[in-house]
Design a protein around this nucleic acid. Structure first.
Lengths: 219, 219
DNA sequence: AACAATCTCCATCATGTGATGGAAACAATC
DNA sequence: GATTGTTTCCATCACATGATGGAGATTGTT
């Protein structure tokens, strides 16, 4: 569907791909407005106009980054779904937490990029909006919380959003929280996984039966 | 401690206070970089130089906003602490969720401002950092998860961070998630409270005894 | 070697932004 | 009513940023 993106991914050494890589990291670090095209060009070691030549305007490059990240995330969800077969709900949650944490800790800019998207009031929100809705439906089905992607109750959606946020925030706020907890980087990752499982697993494993039954009436 | 801030709060109709109010909302909506001093001045109905006359440079105004919000939050925590006396842990959590949700839904810019702080790599992070640490310690004590503010284990800190994030994200992402859940604003608030209690209460009420015992060894 | 296509850079523009100086309006005191 | 201190606005500056045009370099093809 995204032909320029495919072309860029074909050869990671191509100029277009190199720009995308730098843009991804810098946008993730500083957000859209605090990342200048000159910063990205400087990081790649090229001129600004070369950047514009390959990607058009800044907004297009940003959407290219979001698109690439989106594809990666969807791949991870498919991995979760594969590994979740024939496991109970508690185990499924643990698998999902492990897979997503491993991925996000290895690509910390991803969590930032997604969370930045919540704030931007720009026009591209529609794009990201669709993505998030897709994530939610995917998780619901993979977790066995909904029969198909169309029949996800409000409660289930809200609960998945809460889980998803919890994961993202711990990774996104890493630079902020790790010093606060005063632990080494590797320890931080372990603490995060443990905390997520501690908080999330009991709620779903204990209460799921009732939650699904009363899932369509809101208080 | 903050003398200019006190002066502004003394008279809500004063120019300095009016600027602070507009700045608070606009910074909350758009973040620091996407909010211009001209936007704020325009919202108040004054000239840019009037704004600079009262508040100095943009960064100072921003810190004024953060400071005011910080004071409000601390008041809420004190309220939680008062109302938590002689209640068990599950009930304490519910009280804390209710109080903080009511406050944040009534002042939605607050959640944005705090979350924006996670991302900004600017110099003021130290200020916010201290604030967050204070929040965490306060909650830990109010919840009865730690004896005093100095003796909070890594696990407890991480768990409180997770709770705090969950609350903030639902309010901050309201404009984003409410359409996704397709519910009315009042319903959204109810769903959020319910979801938070659903997810958070079981973990702490079931597991607390063991959690506190093994609170100092990770993994 | 000649040519065409692609790529990269230098110079430059238009615009928006943070910030300031100084003039004018206002308020308070005598 | 004059004087002094405070507040507000107009005009303007310096600078960073997004973006472009066109010249030069590079590569591939014949």
């Amino acid at each position: 569907m995204a032909s320029p993106l495919e072309k860029a991914l074909q050869d990671p050494g191509s100029m277009k791909a190199r720009i995308l890589t730098s843009a991804r990291r810098l946008f993730g670090d500083n957000g859209f407005s605090d990342t200048t095209t000159r910063m990205i060009a400087g990081d790649v070691g090229i001129d600004v106009s070369t950047l514009h030549y390959h990607w058009g305007e800044k907004q297009d490059l940003y959407e290219g980054v979001i698109g690439a990240v989106h594809e990666e995330i969807m791949e991870r969800f498919q991995e979760v779904e594969r590994r979740c077969r024939k496991a109970d709900l508690g185990r499924r949650l643990e698998i999902a937490i492990d897979v997503m944490c491993d991925y996000l800790f290895a690509n910390p800019e991803v969590a930032n990029l997604i969370l930045f998207g919540y704030f931007r009031k720009a026009d591209h929100t529609a794009v990201l909006d669709v993505n998030i809705t897709t994530y939610i439906a995917n998780i619901a089905v993979a977790m066995g919380l909904a029969a198909d992607q169309e029949a996800v109750s409000v409660q289930t959606k809200a609960r998945i959003l809460a889980v998803w946020h919890s994961v993202l925030n711990f990774i996104s706020g890493q630079a902020f929280f790790r010093p606060m907890l005063d632990v080494a980087p590797e320890t931080y990752a372990a603490v995060v996984k443990e905390t997520l499982k501690f908080i999330l697993v009991p709620a779903f494993t204990i209460d799921t039966a009732e939650a699904l039954k009363t899932g369509s009436n809101n208080h």
